[in-house]
């Protein structure tokens, strides 16, 4: 029998397209495409990118929570046994200044820290940060100890408190493991260049982008207007930044 089996041909078909794309990238070192969608499926993520969000609280409309419902829909989060145990990857926090009475609201989710406390404390390494700055839970090795939930300054994490069925194929989730905002990693990897919350916001208050790319809109807006981090005192260098207060 010929060593070139149909399977080998099949495998080549699967890989073929992406090899060409990889070659295209390496031909121009230092010059990276603005459209980062070009990362081929077989190329590992790298620290060339650092994905983040910029949230403009001036635009965040009072009483709106479209980003929350969009996140729940995208990731298959459903109400189960009540608000204390239901997972929330993103929530609207209403803020009021005690001294001036100034009020605003803002979405809060995993802040995708450069130095994430959840990653530091995780005993098995299930909580980890991808090279491109996205903080994730590897549920395959999460033992459900919840130490990361103790450590997170943003209360960004939830434990799945019950048996789940009918998860989204691209977003596996299950009982007894901890989860949080993935920055819509499946969309990022697909090259959508946005997240479900950012897409859903009617006021464009949420902007997704590459903090490492000085030409990206997120970087330009941060350069122009500045941005602040929640709990900046902790020095975690979050990937989610806020403007407007």
């Amino acid at each position: 029998m010929n060593s070139e089996t149909p399977i080998d041909q099949y495998r080549r078909r699967l890989l073929g397209g992406s090899v060409a794309a990889l070659a295209g990238l390496t031909l121009a070192p230092g010059v990276f495409l603005q459209t980062v969608q070009a990362r081929p499926a077989d190329e590992p993520v790298s620290d060339r990118n650092r994905w983040g969000l910029l949230i403009d609280t001036n635009k965040c409309a009072d009483g709106c929570n479209r980003c929350v419902t969009a996140c729940n829909e995208e990731n298959g989060l459903k109400p189960m046994h009540g608000p204390t145990t239901d997972p929330q990857w993103i929530r609207i926090v209403k803020v009021k200044s005690k001294s001036t009475g100034y009020q605003f609201q803002m979405p809060v989710m995993c802040q995708h820290c450069e130095h994430p406390p959840c990653v530091d404390v995780c005993p098995t390494g299930a909580s980890f940060k991808r090279a491109d700055g996205i903080v994730l839970v590897d549920r395959h090795i999460c033992i459900g100890c919840r130490y990361c939930m103790m450590a997170c300054p943003y209360k960004a994490r939830s434990l799945v408190h019950e048996t789940l069925t009918d998860q989204k194929p691209y977003m596996p989730r299950g009982k007894g493991t901890v989860e949080s905002c993935t920055l819509c990693v499946h969309k990022v990897d697909r090259g959508d260049g946005t997240t479900a919350c950012a897409e859903a916001c009617p006021e464009q208050a949420i902007l997704f982008g590459d903090l490492n790319d000085s030409g990206s809109e997120i970087s330009r807006r941060l350069e122009q207007y500045g941005g602040r981090q929640l709990r900046a005192d902790l020095g975690l260098n979050t990937g989610v930044r806020y403007q407007g207060f």
């Binding site: 890989l15 590992p44 491109d132 590897d138 691209y170 990693v185």
Partner: peptide, 18 residues
């Protein structure tokens, strides 16, 4: 493949559970 996809974002179709 699980580890490649999870940690490196490699999402080729080969040996993908999906």
């Amino acid at each position: 493949k699980r580890d490649l996809t999870m940690h490196q974002g490699i999402r080729t179709k080969d040996a993908s559970l999906k």
